[in-house]
């Protein structure tokens, strides 16, 4: 499969729906099960909302990678928002500075196979997460 990247700008609530739809569509075309498509769409929904809540705007990028006989879907959520001062705290379940359930980041991490945060206060945040396609 050719490596194409899909970019979805996040700037308003409808973009959250658009991002998860793109994630689901790409997962479907890459052969992910309906269950995994839903898991990916749900994780995307959480991190896209995080962008909107904390950074106001940003983007979510999707691409499919093939690593040997494995196929994975990579989601990168990037913004130039305030950054995360305490990543460990942000990944704690039930912790929210925006009045949410505090399940956004820890929830997305649990849904996906790999999850990585690169962030700097005042500069922004980039979250990379990956789901491998089941055999």
């Amino acid at each position: 499969m050719a490596e194409t990247e899909i970019l979805v700008p996040i700037d308003s609530e409808v973009d959250i729906i658009s991002a998860r739809r793109h994630g689901r569509d790409l997962a479907r075309s890459a052969g992910f099960s309906l269950g995994d498509q839903t898991v990916i769409a749900t994780a995307v929904s959480e991190i896209a909302r995080n962008i909107l809540m904390y950074a106001k705007r940003g983007e979510v990028r999707f691409r499919v990678v093939n690593d040997g006989d494995r196929c994975g879907l990579i989601v990168v959520a990037a913004d130039r928002g305030p950054g995360i001062a305490d990543v460990d705290l942000a990944l704690q379940e039930g912790h929210s500075t925006a009045g949410g359930l505090g399940l956004g980041l820890p929830g997305a991490r649990r849904l996906m196979d790999d999850f990585e945060i690169v962030t700097a206060v005042g500069e922004g945040t980039a979250i990379t997460m990956r789901k491998w396609r089941g055999k």
């Binding site: 839903t38 898991v39 769409a41 959480e46 399940l103 820890p106 929830g107």
Partner: peptide, 14 residues
Amino acid sequence: IQPEVAFAMVQLGL
């Protein structure tokens, strides 16, 4: 609630 949605909800901790 659809089965795969229920699955994702439980995994998410909801």
